Lab assay of single mutants.
Amino acid sequence: EQRVMALYDFQARSPREVTMKKGDVLTLLSSINKDWWKVEAADHQGIVPAVYVRRLAH
């Protein structure tokens, strides 16, 4: 499974989004949309801005 790391803090503004802190490692579920990526963090799935995360090497 692909992982991403948060580059910045992000506060969810809707139930579809995921709140994350800089340095958090999340599971990447989908990167089809270039602006918003779907991730999973602590059993919560949602979207985060793609520019706020970076793919981690396997």
Rank of each mutant, 00 (worst) to 15 (best):
residue 33 N to C: 00
residue 6 A to H: 07
residue 29 L to Y: 05
residue 31 S to E: 15
residue 41 A to Y: 08
residue 7 L to F: 06
residue 48 V to A: 04
residue 7 L to A: 06
residue 39 V to N: 06
residue 31 S to W: 02
residue 56 L to F: 09
residue 51 V to F: 14
residue 26 L to G: 05
residue 41 A to T: 13
residue 50 A to C: 07
residue 5 M to S: 09
residue 42 A to F: 13
residue 37 W to R: 10
residue 47 I to K: 04
residue 29 L to M: 06
residue 44 H to L: 04
residue 2 Q to N: 14
residue 17 E to K: 08
residue 5 M to Y: 06
residue 10 F to L: 05
residue 13 R to V: 01
residue 53 V to R: 01
residue 48 V to E: 02
residue 57 A to K: 15
residue 57 A to V: 07
residue 35 D to W: 03
residue 42 A to K: 14
residue 12 A to F: 05
residue 42 A to M: 08
residue 47 I to Y: 15
residue 25 V to G: 04
residue 27 T to G: 00
residue 42 A to P: 11
residue 6 A to N: 08
residue 52 Y to G: 05
residue 13 R to T: 11
residue 30 S to L: 00
residue 12 A to T: 04
residue 49 P to K: 07
residue 29 L to T: 10
residue 51 V to Q: 14
residue 12 A to I: 08
residue 40 E to V: 06
residue 5 M to H: 03
residue 18 V to T: 13
residue 29 L to E: 00
residue 5 M to K: 11
residue 40 E to D: 09
residue 13 R to S: 11
residue 47 I to G: 02
residue 52 Y to S: 14
residue 46 G to E: 12
residue 42 A to E: 12
residue 18 V to M: 09
residue 45 Q to T: 15
residue 46 G to K: 08
residue 44 H to R: 13
residue 45 Q to V: 13
residue 41 A to S: 14
residue 17 E to Q: 10
residue 19 T to V: 02
residue 56 L to G: 04
residue 45 Q to S: 13
residue 12 A to C: 03
residue 47 I to R: 00
residue 54 R to D: 13
residue 2 Q to C: 08
residue 40 E to M: 11
residue 11 Q to K: 15
residue 41 A to L: 11
residue 44 H to G: 14
residue 18 V to L: 14
residue 9 D to N: 05
residue 17 E to A: 05
residue 43 D to M: 00
residue 30 S to I: 09
residue 17 E to S: 00
residue 40 E to T: 11
residue 13 R to C: 09
residue 26 L to C: 12
residue 43 D to N: 12
residue 19 T to S: 14
residue 54 R to I: 09
residue 54 R to W: 05
residue 6 A to P: 01
residue 52 Y to V: 04
residue 39 V to G: 04
residue 45 Q to L: 04
residue 51 V to M: 14
residue 11 Q to I: 08
residue 18 V to R: 02
residue 41 A to R: 13
residue 41 A to I: 07
residue 10 F to W: 15
residue 21 K to E: 04
residue 3 R to Y: 14
residue 45 Q to D: 07
residue 25 V to A: 11
residue 27 T to S: 02
residue 20 M to W: 05
residue 3 R to C: 05
residue 38 K to A: 10
residue 38 K to R: 12
residue 33 N to Q: 07
residue 36 W to D: 06
residue 7 L to V: 11
residue 17 E to V: 01
residue 42 A to T: 07
residue 26 L to V: 03
residue 2 Q to L: 06
residue 18 V to I: 12
residue 10 F to M: 00
residue 35 D to L: 04
residue 15 P to D: 14
residue 33 N to P: 09
residue 8 Y to W: 10
residue 34 K to R: 11
residue 56 L to S: 13
residue 44 H to Y: 02
residue 15 P to C: 08
residue 57 A to P: 14
residue 27 T to K: 14
residue 36 W to P: 07
residue 18 V to K: 08
residue 2 Q to D: 15
residue 47 I to C: 10
residue 14 S to R: 09
residue 9 D to P: 04
residue 10 F to A: 03
residue 43 D to T: 11
residue 14 S to A: 03
residue 47 I to T: 04
residue 35 D to Y: 10
residue 5 M to N: 07
residue 46 G to L: 10
residue 56 L to C: 11
residue 13 R to E: 02
residue 45 Q to M: 05
residue 57 A to D: 15
residue 46 G to C: 09
residue 37 W to D: 05
residue 38 K to C: 14
residue 28 L to D: 09
residue 50 A to L: 02
residue 53 V to D: 02
residue 48 V to I: 06
residue 20 M to V: 11
residue 20 M to T: 01
residue 20 M to A: 02
residue 14 S to C: 06
residue 25 V to Q: 04
residue 47 I to A: 07
residue 24 D to A: 03
residue 58 H to Y: 14
residue 5 M to E: 13
residue 53 V to S: 02
residue 18 V to D: 03
residue 22 K to Q: 15
residue 3 R to M: 08
residue 28 L to G: 03
residue 11 Q to D: 06
residue 3 R to K: 14
residue 48 V to W: 02
residue 41 A to E: 01
residue 15 P to K: 13
residue 13 R to M: 03
residue 45 Q to W: 01
residue 46 G to D: 09
residue 10 F to D: 02
residue 12 A to Q: 07
residue 50 A to T: 09
residue 25 V to N: 08
residue 45 Q to N: 10
residue 17 E to H: 05
